[in-house]
Design a protein around this nucleic acid. Structure first.
Lengths: 149, 149
DNA sequence: CTAAAAGGTGGCTTTTGTCCACTATTTAAT
DNA sequence: ATTAAATAGTGGACAAAAGCCACCTTTTAG
């Protein structure tokens, strides 16, 4: 992997994350905050995770996560139960309301993706998807820092 | 583009941006702040941009950008000159020190990219690069919200 | 059976970002 | 030409996001 290739990847990272970031900003406007959304989706993604799992997965401070979960709990999006194997740990699950919110967030996210690929013709869209799919597989394969449960 | 494909892209976005985000967090630790780094790199990327250009590109409030630039100026990373065509506008350029810092940031960034692809063998690395390259071209082509100077 | 480690919470601070008001120019409209 | 509206930038005041540290509880290790 030579410098020019690295440079291309860096360019992509900058461009792509910036575009997604701006889109997501608008998505999460006036509903729940970005952090709340991320944590909610992470809970949905994993099965009964502990707060510490969330905080390590998203690389957020555990006290911050604690506070966010407290809010999500007050909003009745998340339930906390004490683990039976380890009475220090809490297990997190989404309520029905929480699941609805996650579904909405995913829908929004999908719309934003559409708004990106809509500018491409069918063939290009297919190419776009194929490239993403390839990257996904490579990330999973080589996945350093890849966390299993 | 069907639902399953969109789902794959959403998965990639989540996974990839999360990984990059965590890496960048560590990069910017204890040197300059994330916002400062982003703005510095944006100035380096564009040629003599105005603050308002930066704030629209990065979707940040103009007063916030103003403050950050003030700090970057105090740190002697950025110089501000008044445009001759429009005396309201300031043109931003990096100082020699500022350029050094940007170079460091890019180097760090490149190392992080290496840390991702290093887990792949040569053939896979090439595939990785090709996919990114393809996406770059597609983003530029279909580029909604793509800003020219 | 004690010491260290890990999960979680709350107080406090810093960083980040928003909103608004204000100055100085520039552009548009009459 | 003169005025009104729009644009670039700044600063004050404040809200939200995120981080650090000290602490309590439970679990694990020696």
């Amino acid at each position: 992997m030579d410098d020019k290739q690295i440079e291309t990847i860096r360019h992509f990272n900058r461009e792509y994350t910036q575009r997604l970031g701006i889109l997501q900003k608008n998505v999460f406007n006036s509903e729940i905050s970005w952090a709340e959304a991320r944590i909610l989706m992470e809970i949905s993604y994993l099965q009964k995770p502990t707060p510490i799992k969330i905080s390590s997965n998203l690389d957020l401070d555990k006290s911050y996560v604690s506070r966010v979960i407290k809010r999500l709990n007050k909003l009745n999006y998340v339930e906390k139960t004490t683990s039976k194997e380890d009475k220090r740990a809490k297990l997190l699950v989404l309520t029905a309301t929480g699941k609805k919110v996650v579904k909405q967030l995913n829908t929004h996210s999908d719309e934003q993706i559409q708004s990106i690929v809509n500018n491409l013709d069918n063939e290009e869209q297919e190419t776009f998807y194929q490239s993403i799919n390839t990257l996904n597989k490579l990330l999973e394969k080589g996945g350093i820092n890849h966390v299993e449960d």
